[in-house]
């Protein structure tokens, strides 16, 4: 009989203890931190495209909106178990897995001016703590006053504006490019590999890679500046509607030319 009483006591005890004891823990939101987001020109190196043209940028501006930062979470990199010599380096490129959850954001419209001034500040991003792996944003067309552009600014009404020089075997071409990308088109999965913890405070710095540091792909691949300079005056203007524009429009959407780091 004692055994039964002991058992009954244990059962009631469990019920009594577990009930109120575990019944009062409230829900908890994920931890959030706020980090400044900046733009700098540290990655803006001079580089060669696939046709041998050495490109140096004097102006590089892109109109974007709604920056998002994503974590991979527990998504599995299916190629991780393969040796690197068996599978191309492209697969090992960080950021290729665009899957993952958006857990950080800086909403709004921005002109990313990589050549205007060092340390351009965009605003304060709200981020959940976690190990980040990707950066996304949407393209848009630059507006007027709201973007601080004057009426004759070449970026006005376009998504991107580049200006610089391309040189090859002694030939030098000065070029400008205006690029249109349909508003809302997403750039997804640029590398952004930092761990954001509860005490993180270092600003996030967005960078443009005219030459992809992993595979050497150039933003200007496919462009033969000599062919574009049909009149031989050393000046090239790439505008929407041309084949050259479409080459640039495509590479500009690739995540390999963007990245973000912790300052």
């Amino acid at each position: 009989m004692l055994g039964k009483r002991v058992t009954l006591g244990v059962m009631l005890g469990l019920g009594v203890v577990l009930g109120p004891g575990f019944g009062c823990t409230p829900s908890q939101e994920a931890q959030r931190v706020q980090l400044e987001v900046e733009v700098d020109d540290a990655a803006l190196v001079i580089g060669d495209n696939d046709l041998g043209w050495r490109v140096e940028l004097g102006t590089a501006r892109i109109a974007v909106m709604d920056l998002q930062f994503s974590i991979l979470g527990e998504g599995h990199d299916a190629s991780a178990w393969l040796p690197s010599w068996l599978i191309g380096r492209a697969w090992a490129h960080p950021g290729h897995l665009s899957g993952g959850d958006v857990t950080g954001e800086l909403g709004g419209e921005f002109i990313l001016d990589w050549t205007g001034a060092g340390g351009m500040q965009l605003g304060t991003a709200e981020m959940l703590t976690g190990v980040y792996q990707g950066l996304n944003f949407g393209f848009r067309a630059a507006a007027g006053a709201s973007d601080g552009l004057v009426v004759d600014d070449p970026l006005l009404g376009h998504t991107a504006h580049f200006a610089g020089t391309a040189s090859k075997a002694g030939q030098v071409v000065m070029f400008t490019a205006q690029v249109d990308i349909e508003a809302g088109t997403q750039m997804v999965g640029a590398p952004f590999e930092i761990e954001v913890g509860p005490t993180s405070a270092a600003p996030v710095v967005l960078q443009l890679f005219p030459v992809d540091p992993v595979e050497g792909l150039s933003l200007f691949d496919g462009l033969d500046f000599a062919a574009l300079d049909a009149d031989g005056d050393g000046l090239v203007a790439i505008v929407p509607g041309e084949d050259a524009h479409n080459f640039l429009r495509r590479t500009l959407q690739s995540h390999v030319h963007y990245g973000a780091v912790e300052r």
Binding site: F22, G23, S27, A30, D101, T103, L128
Partner: peptide, 20 residues
Amino acid sequence: RLQVVGARPLPHGASSATYA
């Protein structure tokens, strides 16, 4: 029947409330 449910982990470090 008294059911007690512990806090469930949710994505991104959040968690649910416990209840009885």
